[in-house]
Design a protein around this nucleic acid. Structure first.
Lengths: 259, 259
DNA sequence: TTGCCCCGCTTGTTGGGACAAGTTGTATAG
DNA sequence: CTATACAACTTGTCCCAACAAGCGGGGCAA
């Protein structure tokens, strides 16, 4: 009838975290202390703590105490991001702009490859499955914390016309702007948003422990007659929000800052 | 040096699921069988299986074998949803339309309350914290599977002008349309999207086990001069995607169907 | 044929123990 | 004073055992 003991442990600690008994960054009592407090075995206490970890509330690492997670959230306004009609006045990469604007230090690791376009991306780009394309991959950091990974795929026909995009160095003004300046303007975007738990690989790349989901944003950019590129961005779900502004928002003072 | 045994178990099973050895809905070998296969104790095998569960790959319930999850995903196009310039031709509630359009049976449980507007919502509605407001709460199902919960808050000034919204029954044409027909049109939306692991309460309401994150969508609707309502929708992350169409998408055949 | 019960399977909960490995502060040696 | 080594903590991994609880099929009874 009564709740399992390990859930009582988790619920009690969760409530105390919510009530501020343990604030962000604070250490929780050690397993030994919790064992005494709840008169439970170490296994049971660990099971309860594991629950909190899997809810993303608590961090654990060998040798150190369990620690309450603290978050600083970056908000990305997707209806402005990369949007030509908004970024007219800005120079350089849209991402750097967003982050610098928030007073943080951005940093990226860049990679360009010739690859077979994955099945799901090929569908979005309307190219034959298995066709070659260019992948521009970017691992983004903010103040040296991994923040997101971004993979942009360009179809072969576009690379043939604009081989610059296959070169392994960064494009100063941003590739969307680069293409627009050369007559290939993206006039429409189709965005898809989803969430799931990270694969082990994603967890490693983004340095997220268990209990933190990823937020996936897939943007397909269209010219007037066909898809031009497809970008899949994988965010740490605990550090990122995405916003959209639709219609007339004179009444709303938008804020794209760190919260 | 070598990987922990429980991770070897998880990695092996994960690979076999990816390779299709175990398809969606299939049962995994029982703990006893896995114990023999990996020459590990029951605890270790369970630890490995728990990892897969927390990644959302596998379901478990007492008395039944571990089962590979299968998903059917519902895509909601947020730039069309509730958008007056698109839904002109549709009658009835936007949600039902979306779901019926996908050939599924929608079903909702409805509730209307007078409540103190929560802190975060009050900020978005630009009303004093602690002020009273009306909450219209909706628990949505598709084919009897819990799909999402939706909480819409209306500020007091709006209820004073439109007391119909405080009445406990559903509004046939949808409340956004109802207000628009009476001169209070929402001309702009500010959408926020985020993800996290569900609270225990959310997990119960949406019938999601561990390893499935929720996708949260907060839409604030604005008239020409102020916020009118704020809707927080909590989706099961494994069953829902959200899309946005921006700009000119003549080149894209949009599909808002079940995938 | 139909309905019920029981048995054997499954996973869930909880206890015990042992050793490995990482962190941190302290005390000691240089 | 500094640097090293140790000691005392922490959590991580792994084993064993026992009983509870849920599910499903087979067999028995009506």
């Amino acid at each position: 009838m009564s709740k399992p003991l390990y859930r009582q442990v988790a619920d009690a600690l969760r409530a105390e975290i919510a009530d501020g008994v343990f604030g962000p960054g604070d250490d929780l009592p050690s397993e030994r202390e919790l064992r005494e407090r709840f008169d439970a075995s170490r296994n049971t206490v660990r099971q309860g703590l594991q629950l909190l970890v899997s809810e993303g509330l608590v961090n654990s690492s060998q040798g150190r105490a369990y620690q309450v997670r603290s978050h600083e959230i970056f908000v990305l306004n997707a209806s402005k991001f990369e949007n030509l009609q908004f970024s007219q006045r800005e120079d350089g990469d849209s991402y750097d702009n967003e982050v610098l604007h928030a007073g943080r230090q951005p940093h990226q690791e860049f990679r360009v490859e010739m690859v077979k376009v994955p099945q799901d991306i090929a569908e979005r780009l309307k190219v034959a499955p298995g066709e070659q394309g260019v992948l521009r991959f970017c691992h983004r950091f903010v103040d040296d914390t991994p923040w997101s990974t971004q993979a942009t795929y360009y179809p072969k026909w576009l690379i043939d016309a604009h081989p610059r995009l296959a070169e392994p160095d960064d494009i100063e003004e941003g590739s969307t702007r680069y293409l627009a300046d050369r007559g290939l303007e993206q006039v429409g975007y189709h965005d898809e948003l989803m969430t799931r738990m990270p694969t082990p690989e994603e967890a490693r790349e983004l340095q997220i422990g268990p209990g933190v989901p990823v937020l996936i944003w897939i943007r397909t950019g269209f010219s007037t007659d066909k898809p031009v590129r497809c970008t899949r961005t994988t965010f740490r779900g605990d550090l990122n929000h995405i916003t959209y502004d639709l219609g007339d928002l004179r009444a709303h003072a938008t804020g794209g800052d760190l919260h």
